[in-house]
């Protein structure tokens, strides 16, 4: 469908179609990327999760004695939903170390354990589909002058989704 006007200019040339395709694809992908990037709240979520867990297990009086136990129940103790955390989209790791000799006193992991490695990788490279991670550490002085270093690593790769459920309440 190549037509020429009197001066021999091609109006419907292949270049015209190529330019339109380039402009269209550019605008569509630019707009889509802009709005999806602005709505990515995974980092905020992991930051909130890490902060919440940290506040729950440590306070100005020291660390919660329950967290030193082997079968520490994060869900019951910190009011975090087990079904959400174990949906495969979240991860929480609690580490408690002796402040002076750096020996590991206890460690608890909840959620998707694969995210621990992903968080390590993400500190070195940029990977959009990897989870967003947040690490928080505090120095805690317990009763009896025992000093601990409490670290919490939280990760989220939850992006939400369309809901087809009908309202029931």
């Amino acid at each position: 469908m190549i037509k020429m006007n009197k001066r021999g200019e091609k109006l419907f040339s292949i270049w015209w179609f190529i330019i339109l395709i380039i402009i269209g694809v550019g605008i569509v992908s630019g707009v889509s990327l802009f709005y999806s990037y602005n709505l990515d709240v995974r980092f905020l979520e992991s930051d909130l999760l890490a902060g919440k867990v940290l506040k729950c297990i440590s306070n100005p009086e020291g660390i919660s004695p329950l967290v030193l136990e082997e079968d520490f129940d994060l869900y019951g103790h910190c009011g975090i939903s087990q079904s959400v955390l174990e949906s495969g989209k979240y991860f929480v790791k609690i580490e408690i170390k002796d402040f002076f000799d750096d020996s590991n006193l206890t460690e608890h992991k909840f959620g998707n354990n694969a995210f621990e490695k992903d968080c390590e990788i993400k500190t070195k490279i940029t990977a959009v589909n990897y989870p967003e991670c947040s690490r928080k550490s505090v120095y805690v002085v317990n009763e009896g002058d025992k000093k601990y270093l409490v670290s919490v690593l939280a990760a989220s790769n939850y992006k939400g989704g369309k809901n087809s459920n009908e309202q029931t309440n």
Partner: peptide, 22 residues
């Protein structure tokens, strides 16, 4: 419902997002 907030503004499917706090 079930630690999820659901927002729906038309008769189409809405959008849901989890909150992890119980």
């Amino acid at each position: 419902k079930d630690n999820q907030v659901n927002v729906k503004l038309s008769k189409e499917d809405g959008y849901s997002y989890n909150y992890f706090t119980n």
